[in-house]
Design a protein around this nucleic acid. Structure first.
Lengths: 341, 341
DNA sequence: CTGAAAGCGCTTACAG
DNA sequence: CTGAAAGCGCTTACAG
């Protein structure tokens, strides 16, 4: 077993004090340029690396962020919503860019996750990612806040809830895509997705949907609402439950792409043609959505931007500021599944 | 700002020494049961958590694993191969189960990633995940080994390369699925996927494919090989390049599901019916594969098992053992895209 | 510009 | 069973 070099070893070789080594390695302007270069050369030669535990302990910080990913409770062990995975990617990149490491952890909503990350100095702050069932969340968020943990939540900004959150403008997304459906002639709808307090994102999308129907002068009963959670299976069953009345529906607005993929599957299995017999749109613009048959019209959330915003906001909090909640813009992605584009 | 309690605060309140607090909190049998309970109660009350930096520094370990995920070099910023994401999920779970935290980081193969994780005591070991372009890797792996870093690589076990690796039996997978294709009557093939030193997984799948052709007594030229990397786009182009001869091909063996998804897209766009005109099979069993039209026959790698094996192996290394490389079994998943099942 | 020293908050060998 | 003390490897205020 190789023994790791310490700053004392370097100091010894360089003929300076350990303090000077530490300063040189941190690029302190206090150190003579020549000395600094010499020290760095020796450090490289010995393959010396600053011990993070010691450094963090001394500085009382960790330069690490923790990402807690909440699984959809019903999801099977190996499946994770592709949208969140894509967020995971962008958050990882954003923290790396900011010079922070990222500790990743999957949590079940039901677990006792109030999370020993910041308390233990393992992380300077926490990012919470998942469809927020805020009814269940709430107490845990309060506890985090009580302990003055720095955290940011992905999801709908919501006055009533503890902590800051960043989310996409789900209302606007639901509004825009519905208006598009109406503009190309669709008049009757089914909204697939549980829209209640347990799924505020879906609820906002649904409200945007209804608002568009109203504002375009269609009767309020032009849409029907069917519960579904964000899985293909659930989308499949939702469509099955509507089969008896399928003729009366022009367009399906699925609250997520996963639901839409399952819905299209069910329609195909029942010989309903998309988009000829019925239009289908989704939400999230997950990678698959381009490759379904037909390609899925959907609402894109910019995960890159969102990830950056989350990290930036959290970092501000860690630096003692109080950054505001943020609502990210959303974009329509028109493809074939909604009919005449 | 709340001041964090330390073990001294607890000691003070409990009327014992700080050493005893430390012992009690670590469930040392040396401590009187009553004292232990009292200390734990006080710790809870003060919301005390052991400082990981201090604890790790003292113990010279981190109880943390680092996962380096290598992106396919051509992949755009926000896309990550779903197969690896699924591995990510299972690795995260497996490390949590083992009581380790997981530091996740995306790396570009081109970056200088020899990775200050173990050297800095940020992690006790490293997991490398990605399609291994081992030609490029090699030097970096050697360097890791030289520094006596504990690491494990996902990929084909390979005598020639530094370090231990765990991978699925790609040869067997390629063999099995090809034999199935032959058994249901297909006689001519195209293999889509770059099969050279830069993509050893694909190469092994290709070799299994060829072996099956030989062992079933078909002529060696019953398959043609077209380069493709693991993206839908690449699968799409690969099929396009074969269109002039498409009639001569019974079945496409795509080296990954992503390639297959793109290939099926291209076939559809060119009015070639799957599976009636041509069969298509993939590899990986990514979530989408169930929902393509038609559903994709593919080879499943058990990511759950694989993740656990990686973590277990690495932990053994950390404990000073020399666990062997491992080849994980693989399963055929028969769906509609290959024709008569 | 440099060094000696204190101290971050633990764990654990040593002594009792 | 318990305590006093050393020490993990740094960073940084203090003194020069």
């Amino acid at each position: 077993m190789k023994v790791k070099a310490t700053s004392f070893d370097i100091a010894h070789r360089a003929g300076v004090s350990q303090s000077t080594v530490s300063r040189a390695l941190r690029d302190s302007p206090l150190v003579n340029q020549e000395t600094r270069d010499k020290i760095k050369a020796i450090a490289q030669e010995l393959n010396y690396k600053v011990d993070k535990n010691a450094s963090n302990l001394r500085q009382q910080q960790s330069r690490t962020l923790a990402l807690l990913l909440f699984e959809d409770p019903t999801t099977d062990d190996s499946l994770i919503n592709p949208f969140f995975l894509s967020m995971l990617g962008s958050i990882t990149r954003a923290s790396a860019q900011a010079g922070y490491d990222l500790l990743v952890s999957f949590q079940n909503l039901s677990d006792d996750w109030h999370a020993d990350y910041e308390d233990t100095n393992k992380a300077d702050g926490i990012i919470l990612l998942g469809y927020g069932d805020y009814v269940d969340y709430r107490d845990k968020l309060s506890k985090l806040e009580e302990q003055e943990t720095h955290f940011i939540r992905w999801g709908a900004p919501d006055e009533e809830h503890p902590g800051v959150s960043i989310g996409c403008d789900n209302f606007q997304g639901g509004f825009d895509i519905t208006r598009h459906l109406i503009s190309i002639g669709h008049k009757t709808f089914a909204f697939l997705g549980g829209a209640d307090k347990h799924a505020p994102e879906f609820m906002a999308r649904y409200q945007g949907h209804c608002k568009a129907i109203k504002s375009e002068g269609l009767p309020l009963d032009s849409t029907r609402h069917v519960d579904a959670i964000s899985t293909e299976e659930s989308g499949y069953s939702a469509v099955e439950s509507l089969l008896p009345d399928i003729e009366s529906i022009n367009a399906f607005f699925c609250a997520s792409d996963l639901i839409a993929v399952g819905a299209m599957q069910a329609l195909r299995d029942n010989n309903v043609k998309v988009p000829d017999d019925v239009a289908v749109v989704g939400y999230d613009n997950i990678p698959v959505s381009r490759f379904t048959d037909p390609a899925l019209t959907t609402v894109a959330q910019d995960t890159m931007l969102a990830g950056e915003a989350l990290v930036k906001n959290l970092l501000l909090q860690i630096n003692g500021e109080k950054p505001p909640a943020q609502l990210m813009p959303v974009n329509l992605v028109l493809r074939k599944s909604c009919g005449r584009t």
